[in-house]
Write a protein that binds this DNA or RNA. Structure first.
Lengths: 130, 130, 130, 130
DNA sequence: GTGGTCTAGACCACT
DNA sequence: GTGGTCTAGACCACA
């Protein structure tokens, strides 16, 4: 399904969340499709079931999936998710922090700006090739 | 000097580092100027001295400051710091992650792009007004 | 007969029970009328027969229906059911918990009160229009 | 601090959440006050630390508390919490379900209505005596 | 089989 | 000391 990066500073359950969101938002996992069961995925990634469940729980809380005990977990209707302004602001701060880090690392403002533009353009192109 | 946000998920020592870098990179604390002593700052921010110590150690490791034993810690020549490619790549990943988060939160690609552009432009304007 | 909400946190058998009770108490299914067989209903709702079986068993236990072996299951005389004080107390706790949740969600006491009154009034009106 | 009801159908972590919310909303735990540490409370209630942490995490997510790793968890400014319409609707459904259950249990509409009114009035009186 | 809860106990970073 | 993450493995209700 996807791979974990054990060297990443991101925790395992966060990686699972991000990877799943990616699959859902890009439509690889369409609405209503069934996610691998907690046990399946935990075995597949060789991590503890609790870790997967933690990720699934968070995904459910954010409205990406819904869970039917005894039957499985399924992709929700993501188009309904309404942007949460508070969260967006947090992410904005995160991005601003990242941008400033580039400056701290010794880049000029214009170099940093260019890097961010490149990141977005690369992302845009990769989306178009889906 | 600056304020801490005790409710922030960022750890205190990270906040100290970021604030210090900000002051240094923007020139508020020019090269050679003396930083508050660990004790002074810890008292000022009412945090544990160990926490300030840790922040200063990291700042020194990254080349932003240097310590003159018995005299204090001073701002280094920041223009010398060479961008560390590995670190830049990490920050790039962080920014990309943030950008994708905007999408996950329900924004369209163009909305997310616009937000990032606004962040950078705001930052640019604030720098010009320094 | 009725629809299930597969995304609901309520389990399927609970949904079946509640829907059946609704039909019985409102008189849509009058005393003595025959319920769909387990197989029929399970096919109709595309759920596992065991699930329907479990719901019927619970409904019988509570006195809403009775089974005539080999002939089917029928609506019992509901007017005979005596309120079970223990159960009523449980439901009262549930309602109190819900009411407090409204407060936790940031509503004032009066707002919460008004909401509950509206719920009951709406229910009352819909009953009158049966 | 409070007691758990091990016979309750509510899970332990839900009970912890509800009890804490109660203490916070009623002002027993004012803004900024420190919650018992995960370990303390787990020992106090003789439950596993993970269970307490699960509760604390949820409380944080809902904005009732904030957490400062290494220092403890603290009561947040609850007045800021904005009612979440989706959640309110869920609670409304819950209350409606409870109300209907009273009817199913054999009460008349007016009896059920009176019970709910009594619940709210009792709650109101107990608040006034705080 | 499915998800949900819980225990016991470990390791980590931060204060 | 604090909270955060994770493993290993148990028990439960539900389908």
């Amino acid at each position: 399904m996807f791979q974990l990066d054990l060297t990443s500073p991101k925790s395992i359950y966060e990686q699972v969340i991000d990877n799943m969101k990616e699959l859902i938002v890009t439509g690889v996992m369409p609405e209503g499709s069934r996610l691998p069961s907690v046990r399946e995925l935990s075995k597949d990634l060789t991590v503890n079931p609790n870790t997967i469940q933690k990720a699934y729980r968070e995904l459910e809380r954010e409205g990406f999936i819904y869970t039917a005990s005894g039957r499985g977990t399924f992709v929700a209707d993501v188009s309904v998710i309404k942007p949460d302004d508070a969260k967006i602001q947090n992410v904005e701060k995160e991005i601003l922090g990242g941008f400033r880090s580039l400056i701290y690392l010794g880049l000029s403002f214009d170099e940093a700006k260019k890097i961010v533009e490149t990141i977005i353009n690369t992302e845009e192109r990769s989306k178009r090739n889906d």
